[in-house]
Amino acid sequence: MNQLIVSTAPHVKTARTTKTIMLDVLIALAPATIAGCVLFGWQALVLILISLASAFLTEFVWYIIQNKVWQGGKEVVNAFFKQFDFTSLITGLLLALIIPANIDAWYMPLLGSIFAVGVVKMLFGGTGRNIMNPALMGRIFLFISFAAMTAYPDPNFGALFESNGSLMTGATSLTSGLAGEGTLSALDLLLGTGVAGCIGETCKIALLAGGVYLCVRGVIKWYLPLIYIAVTGLFAVALEGFDFTQFLPSILSGGLILGAIFMATDYVTTPKSKLGNIIYFVLLGLLTAGLRKATGIEVVSFCIVLMNLVVFLLDAAIKARPFGFHKEKKVKADTAKEGK
């Protein structure tokens, strides 16, 4: 007879674990990663690998030091692989996808990953405890530290403004579009051909494919990225005096689609309730369109991180309303008044 397991109900559990969810995210990022490598060449691949490796090693080193590897030895290493849930790899990959494919700045993904995983994630307590999205914080860290963050090399396909192969500085289609000199068609923006930008954000069709995969697998809810993208587009249209030609360029440019599907939907940094999530994504859309108009640069990463900080307020404000609650509305209102 085996040793009996005694635990509280329920005695069956879903096969879905944190690991399988995170693996799904990695799979969903594959099309965008491949598209990035195709559009920007081997340089993009090298940067992605640097970023992945440094993100993984940061968590590994952090874990073994935290768990006193000099005492536990091999057991600590085994324990690390047992609990490793791929979140650092997602952070590393996402960070690589939101930096330019500029091989001269190979140190950027390295430093960014170390900052993202070490400071933003592990310092706050690891998986599930980070207050802000690690990959976006890594990007912002690089953005305010290095000028190379805004030097975008040419993609391999499609006509660019200048096709001499030199680095173009500060001219993603969004910034030029915001300045009123956009020349790219919506199809180019969708496929990422001829679009300067970060490694993973230019090929929208690959990102959308990943998004559809995540929705089908039930990792994210389909309406949340949709709310974000639609609100951003519509508010941008409204800000331009209801010029509907602005709709497609504003949703297809910059990092909006990548941000909406992979960044803003990060479980840890979104509200817990359904209502909270809807409010969050609407506010995010308004903020993104508004700040884009006000600053004239791409601000998706800043907007998401700003909204990450509002999550706690939303969670505190929205309370559970149990099934059968409606009959007690009146009583609840009275007690609320007494509380004040």
Binding site: K13, T18, I21, T127, G128, K272, K274
Partner: peptide, 19 residues
């Protein structure tokens, strides 16, 4: 394999329980 008894890992705030 029916009971699927694993050790708990940190909450990732996915919201499935509330769903």
């Amino acid at each position: 394999d029916e009971t699927n008894a694993d050790e708990p890992t940190p909450c990732i705030n996915c919201g499935r329980c509330a769903d």
